[in-house]
Design a protein around this nucleic acid. Structure first.
Length: 408
RNA sequence: CAGGGUGUGGCGCAGUUGGUAGCGCGCAGCGUUCGGGACGCUGAGGCCGUCGGUUCAAGUCCGAUCACCCUGACCA
C-alpha cells in the first residue's frame, strides 16, 4: 500500500469525543472512523488488523475441527420467543425493527437461537453429532452507554462457536479443546501472558462459565488472582463459598482490572430444549442435544491490543496482527529509487511515498505502529545498506543491500 | 437511566454588554527547504447541531429537541 494513494490521513490531534486511548490512537492513525457512539467504520489499515485477528482465530478453530458458516444478522422473532429472549425484560439491548409486511424483526445480539433452530433441519441422529460450528458475525447491541473506543460498541465483530453433542462427557472433552485453542489464540495475538481463564458465574445448567480476561486498566471487569495466577476469579464469583469450592483457603488474592476478550459456556439444554433440537441415540431414544457456546470479541481484541501496545508516540502492533510488517521510507533521490524497487517486490510493506518531509514520515511511522521501519537515504547508501528500526524497542540495524532479500 | 459537561470550516479551539464569524493545524498555488511533524507569500473553505421564540438585529438571550463525552447504574 502506498500512502500517497490511500484516502486515509493521520491526524495531529485526536477528535475530542474520542477519549479512550485505543479509540484516540486508532482514529488518529487512520485505522477507524467513528460514525456515532459505539459505531465505527474500519478503514483499510483497520480492516487488515481485523482480518489478521480473524485468520489466527480461524486457523485455531479449524484445527480442532470446527466448520465456518455465516448466519444472517436479521432475526426472526419466533425462535427467540420460544426461549423467552425476544422480550425486552429478558434482553434489553435489542435493536428491533419491522418488516415491510408489518412483522417484528430483530438485529442479532447473539446467535444461539437461530443456529439451534437451523440445525433442527440437519440433526436427527446420534450419527449427525457432534458438530462444531462457528462464524465471524456482526452483533448489534443497543447499549445504554457505549464507551471506551472499540472496547464496547453497539455494533461489533465477534467470533461465535457453538458445539452440539450427544453427551455431557463429549461436551466436556470439546470444552477442554476450546480452552486449549483459546490459549493458543491469545498467545499468537501477543496477549497470552496477560490473558487469564477466569471463573465467572455460570447460569442455569452449570455452576461456572469461563471468561478470558486480559489485564487492562480501562477494562470493565474486575478480577482476583492468586499468587501464581493459577486461579483467577471474576469479581461476580469472588466469595468464600466459591473459594472453598475451588479448594482455596487462606490464600491472598490480588485485584485487577481487565477486559473480557472471550468466554466459554456450557449451555447443555438451555436452548436445545425450548427450541426442540433433539436426536435419537443407538436405542432409538429421543434426547435433547447438549450444547456449548464459545465467543471471542474480534473488534474488542483489536481495541485491547491497541490499548495495551502503545506509547506516547502511537501504536505498537505485535507482528501477528500488524497491518503491514514494514513501514518504508526513502529519503533523497537514490533512497527513494531503491525504496521503490523494494516496494515492487513485496506485499507486506506500507510505503510512505508522500511528498513530505522526513520528520513527518517518522512521526506517522511511529503513530501507525508498523513493527519495522525501513529507511533508505544517502546516509545509509554510503554504507551500501538500508536501516531497519524496531518500533517496539527502538533498536536499529543496518542491512547490506545485497542481503535485503534474505533479511526482510 | 441518574448526575455532570460539550456541540462554531476536515481536526483542535476563541468569540466581551446581542450589531454582517476569528486563530492554529490541515488543504490549494508559487518559492526556499529536506534524517524527527520547516518557512515566506497568496488563496479556498463555516449561514455557528436542529426546530421554535424574544428582538430593528441572535453564535451570543429563552424554550424544546437531537447528538457526543465523563462518572455511576446496567452488561446473555
Amino acid at each position: 500500500m502506498r500512502l500517497s494513494k490511500t484516502f486515509i490521513k493521520t491526524l495531529r490531534d485526536a477528535p475530542k469525543d474520542e477519549t479512550a486511548r485505543n479509540g484516540a490512537l486508532l482514529v488518529r492513525a487512520g485505522y477507524i472512523y467513528k460514525e456515532m457512539a459505539g459505531i465505527y467504520d474500519y478503514l483499510p489499515l483497520g480492516l487488515r488488523v481485523i482480518e489478521n485477528i480473524k485468520t489466527i482465530i480461524r486457523e485455531e478453530m479449524n484445527r480442532i475441527g470446527c466448520e465456518e458458516v455465516l448466519l444472517s444478522g436479521l432475526q426472526n422473532p419466533e425462535p427467540w420467543e420460544k426461549t423467552g429472549r425476544f422480550s425486552e425484560s429478558e434482553v434489553d439491548i435489542w435493536f428491533k425493527t419491522k418488516l415491510a409486511s408489518g412483522g417484528d424483526l430483530g438485529l442479532a445480539p447473539t446467535h444461539e437461537e437461530p443456529i439451534t433452530n437451523m440445525l433442527k433441519n440437519y440433526v436427527s441422529s446420534y450419527k449427525d453429532l457432534p458438530l462444531y460450528i462457528y462464524q465471524f458475525q456482526t452483533k448489534f447491541r443497543n447499549e445504554l452507554r457505549a464507551k471506551s473506543g472499540i472496547l464496547r460498541g453497539r455494533e461489533f465483530l465477534m467470533k461465535d462457536l457453538y458445539s452440539f453433542h450427544t453427551s455431557e462427557e463429549d461436551l466436556d472433552v470439546f470444552y477442554g479443546k476450546v480452552e486449549e485453542a483459546y490459549r493458543k489464540i491469545f498467545d499468537r495475538l501477543g496477549i497470552g501472558e496477560d490473558t487469564f481463564e477466569t471463573f465467572a458465574s455460570g447460569g442455569i445448567f452449570s455452576k461456572y462459565s469461563h471468561e478470558f480476561q486480559t489485564l487492562l486498566p480501562v477494562g470493565e471487569d474486575t478480577i482476583y488472582y492468586n499468587k501464581d495466577k493459577s486461579i483467577v476469579l471474576n469479581e461476580e464469583v469472588y466469595n468464600d463459598e466459591v473459594l472453598a469450592d475451588l479448594g482455596v483457603t487462606g490464600e491472598k488474592f490480588e485485584k485487577a482490572t481487565s477486559a473480557e476478550v472471550g468466554n466459554i459456556f456450557k449451555l447443555k439444554f438451555k436452548y436445545s430444549e425450548p427450541l426442540g433440537l433433539k436426536f435419537v441415540d443407538e436405542n432409538n431414544t429421543q434426547k435433547p442435544v447438549y450444547m456449548g457456546c464459545y465467543g471471542i470479541g474480534v473488534s474488542r481484541l483489536m481495541g485491547t491490543i491497541a490499548e495495551k501496545f502503545s506509547d506516547e508516540k502511537g501504536l505498537i502492533w505485535p507482528e501477528s496482527v500488524a497491518p503491514f510488517k514494514y513501514y518504508l521510507i526513502g529519503i533523497g533521490e537514490a533512497g527513494t529509487k531503491l525504496a521503490e524497487e523494494i516496494y515492487d517486490k513485496r506485499d507486506d510493506v506500507l510505503f510512505d511515498d508522500r511528498d513530505v518531509r522526513p520528520g513527518e514520515k517518522f512521526g506517522d511511522a511511529d503513530l501507525i505502529g508498523i513493527p519495522y521501519r525501513i529507511v533508505i537515504s544517502d546516509k545509509t547508501l554510503e554504507e551500501e545498506a538500508i536501516e531497519i528500526t524496531n518500533r517496539a524497542n527502538g533498536e536499529t540495524k543496518l542491512v547490506k543491500i545485497e542481503e535485503i532479500e534474505k533479511s526482510l
